[in-house]
Structures are given as C-alpha cells and as structure tokens.
Design a protein around this nucleic acid. Structure first.
Lengths: 205, 205
DNA sequence: GGGGGAAGACAGACTGGTCTTCCCCGCGGT
DNA sequence: ACCGCGGGGAAGACCAGTCTGTCTTCCCCC
C-alpha cells in the first residue's frame, strides 16, 4: 500500500540538472504518465516503459519495486496534475460564485473531450480494468471519492442543502459524460451541464 | 468485422442433445458469458475457457477462429440476454406508460446493482479496456448506440420533444450510475432516476 | 474406415522481475 | 596532479510464467 515510489525532490545540485535531461525517476514517471493516460495501465508493459524513457531495467526497479507501485505513483500524480490542476482549480477560476464553479466543471470537461489525446478518466479506467477488489482498483476508488469530497465542499460553500447527496449525483453526471465522450459523443458535457443545472436548482435552500 | 462466430443453432437431433450436456460451442459460450461478464475479457484466457468448458483446444478453435471472435459473439449474446431481456423488456413490463417505462429502467438498474455478481456494463468495460479504435471497442460502441436507439424509440412513444437529445442525456445518466455503482454507491440508480425525472419533465411537449 | 473430439505438446511472442557485465564519473588519498 | 576506488546507470541476458494459436496423437462412435 505504501507507494515507496518516491519522486525524487528537486534537491539536486544545479550543475547536474543542467546537463542531465532529468532524474531517472522523473523521466520514467513522465513516460508512464503519458502512456498510462492514453492507453491504460494494462496495455503498457515495463519493457516499453524503460525503452521509451531510455533507462535500464535495473534502474527502473531501483526506483519502483514493482510495476504496480509505479501505477500507484501514476494515480497519485494524476490526482495532482489532472484532478486538482486541470479540472478543479480551473473550474474554480472560471466561476465567480461557488454555484457557477460547480457548473463550470462541465465547461472544462467539454474542452477536455475535444482534445485528440482524450482517453477517458484514468481512475474509472483502472477501476474497470483491475476490478474493485484489486489494490489499484481500491486506490482509484479512493481518488474518485476524493473528487467527490471536493465537490461536496464547494456545494457547502454554495449553501446547497444535502451537499453529500448533491455531490454523489453530480459525480454520476461527471462519470456519465466522460464515458459518453469516450464513445464519441463530444456534446456529452453540455447535456450533463444542463442536468447539473436542474440538480443545483433542486438543492437550493 | 464479420463475426464468423456462429453460435450453432439448436438444430441438432434430439438424440445427441439428450446425452451430451450441450453442444461444444454452447458450452464455450456459456462459460465465456459468465467469465467475461464478471472479470472482463482481458482477464480471461483461452486456456481457462477450454478448461472450464471441458473442451479441447482444437475444438475451441474450430468453433471460434480466434479469441476476438468469441468476444464478438459474447457481446452479441450480451445484447440479446442482458440489454434486451434483462433490462429493456423488464423496464417495459414494469411501466404502464412509455414515460413510466423510461424511469423504470433505473428501478431495474437498482436491483441489478445489488446482485453480488454485478460487475459493471460489459460494453463500457470492453470499450475502456480495448479503446475505441479496436474492433471490439467499435462493436461495444455499436451496441451502446443500439441501446440509445431503443431509448429514443420509447421517448418517441411517450411524445417527448427532441427524443434524440433526450436519449443521449438519459444514457449519460445510465452510464454514470453504472460506473458509480461499480465504485460501491448502491444508491446510484435512485439518484439517476431523480435526474431522469427532471429530464422527462423538461422534454414534455 | 473415417470424422469429431479430448488431451496435450509445441511454437513464438510477450509478461514482470532478477542478475550480471561493463562503463563512466566523481570522490578521496597521497 | 594523479591514481584508484566505488557507486550509479546502461545494456541486456536470463527466468519462469503467461498469452494466443497450431499441430499431433489417440480414442470412440457412427
């Protein structure tokens, strides 16, 4: 459970970070992030990861004791980079009121769906690929629940009633629109946003 | 693309269907249906399938030229057995009016979510496992679109306006509730049904 | 006798993971 | 200033197991 996969803090001397492209672990994580995001964790093997990141196999296993621990680190990175930076903080930036921020999530989704490298939500994908009993599935569930927590906090800011149920319903819309977009329906975000509007209305004090 | 995977019609003589447990292809399909439904298509190999169905490997490959063709046949069976018989016809049976039938889908979903062998929707799962470019992903998209067509037909029966958009929005709710249930939220069907009610209201003439 | 099927060996490619070999580079001691 | 040591990393062989798919052998039953 304890990831062990420590992303080495940038405490390296200026000198070697100048010539070296990046620390080995950083390069591995960068490659893993891209490949896992786009093709899923099951489709990407260790051999491909080490080849694309130009690292020796022994080096890989010195930084990450197993492939699963790398996937765990990837999910953590995904939470930071995607959930927090790309979706939530962007939605907060766009909405002037908490209520508007909740609806702005689907604006951000709409643009995300249009990207050519869009390939559904990694947490949902890993959950369905590995099953809810597998440690990686459990981790995915935890991160999805973390998202629900954030949504609930904004709902409380907005003064909505029963914020817990609100957040769970909004996540149904989020997940549904993501899957629908993976199927090719680029307008799924708009449909979800419309229903989110009714949901907000229904949870007004 | 052409399935090739012909499920042999029950045109066998009475005599051999008496002693034989079932035709080889039928036994393979039965085992595949259960394992694919519960664990996903990637997690189940040909060796396990032939072992559990008590059939020789050569026999397997005489009936199904490849594993993918078996998966294709499985998706087709899933459409017949799950989409049609378990969900849609059951929803139609329960609702007295077309509108009630649309909402009854989520009653059926709610009971489905409670089954201990519930493991999300096979079409969504295969789509996310294989990607939308893979033939199996394409087939899954086609079957999901078939479901949308059925929903749209009922929406037209109900006299709803813009039945196409209605159906797409309802499918967002269906998929979202399924994923949420796979995560452990057993009440996801109820939340989706509530939003479906608002959706129906909004599409009234 | 011939066809279908069970059993299973086999092929070839891949999986995650270990271990060995070599090399380079920076450090410390003289 | 030079030498030598040692650690990190690249390359890759290797291992045991898995995957899909083929082919052979035997047997049974019509």
């Amino acid at each position: 459970m304890s990831p062990e996969a420590k992303v080495p803090q940038p405490s390296e001397s200026l000198a070697d970070s100048l010539m070296a492209p990046a620390g080995s672990a950083d390069r591995i994580m960068a490659v893993a992030y891209e490949l896992f995001s786009q093709r899923g964790v099951r489709d990407v093997g260790v051999n491909e990861l080490i080849e694309r990141s130009g690292v020796a196999k022994a080096t890989f296993y010195r930084h990450f004791p197993s492939k699963d621990s790398l996937v765990l680190a990837f999910l953590e990175q995904r939470d930071r980079q995607w959930t927090m930076d790309m979706i939530l903080s962007e939605a907060r930036r766009r909405g002037s009121t908490p209520t508007a921020q909740l609806l702005a999530v689907f604006d951000v989704f709409g643009e995300w769906f249009l990207r050519e490298d869009f390939e559904a939500c990694s947490f949902v994908r890993v959950l369905l690929e590995m099953g809810p009993a597998h440690p990686l599935g459990q981790a995915s569930i935890a991160y999805l629940d973390k998202i629900r927590g954030h949504v609930q906090a904004v709902a409380e800011e907005a003064g909505l009633v029963r914020p817990d149920e609100f957040a769970r319903s909004l996540l149904v819309l989020m997940k549904g629109s993501v899957v629908q977009a993976a199927e090719g329906d680029m307008l799924a975000a708009g449909r979800a946003q419309q229903m989110a509007g009714w949901l907000v209305e229904h949870h007004r004090a």
